[in-house]
């Protein structure tokens, strides 16, 4: 039973930590952020498993984590606020030719990150970008200015 509780706690704790540490997964993830993700995951695993290296313990913890994930996914559909807490909200990083400094500072995103996504979309210059939006999944969407489309 302790393993199941540790699994649920470990999952919820990691969700909170990853949400707090910043939303830069997916295409924006840098090598040093991989270190954080793997380190945090590995250390959580140690505490969750403890001395019990049995298959039974692994099965029950995996199932409990999967169930916690399902329950959270269901609850965040029911309650919008929980969805905002878990996934966050899209944030505009660039609009009307101006950087949205507050959002970029809080989300630790630099103009280089936006330009990288612009290049990924076939754009050559930032003035071709009408809007850049940090999505809930951590990717940056780039919308071209109408004249460049």
């Amino acid at each position: 039973m302790a393993g199941v509780l540790r699994g649920v706690f470990g999952y919820c704790f990691l969700v909170l930590i990853v949400r707090t540490a910043g939303r830069r997964p997916g295409k924006q993830i840098a090598p040093f952020e991989f270190v954080f993700v793997f380190f945090a995951g590995g250390l959580t695993l140690t505490a969750m498993v403890g001395d019990d290296r049995s298959l039974t313990n692994a099965f029950t913890i995996i199932i409990s984590i999967a169930l916690t994930h399902l329950v959270l996914a269901y609850l965040q559909r029911r309650w919008k606020t929980l969805g905002l807490i878990i996934d966050g909200t899209p944030l505009v990083l660039l609009k009307n030719g101006k950087w949205q400094v507050e959002a970029m500072r809080h989300m630790r995103i630099q103009d280089d990150d936006v330009m990288a996504m612009a290049r990924d979309n076939g754009l050559e210059r930032l003035d071709q970008v009408a809007y850049a939006v940090l999505e809930r999944n951590g990717e940056i969407s780039v919308i071209q200015t109408p004249k460049d489309q």
């Binding site: 606020t81 905002l84 807490i85 966050g88 909200t89 899209p90 944030l91 505009v92 609009k95 009307n96 959002a103 809080h106 009408a130 809007y131 939006v133 919308i143």
Partner: peptide
């Protein structure tokens, strides 16, 4: 929408609370 044209769905009030 942002600028009445781009549907983003930002909730800045929540985001300020979250920060």
């Amino acid at each position: 929408k942002v600028n009445d044209e781009l549907a983003v769905g930002s909730d800045l009030e929540f985001q300020h609370k979250w920060w």
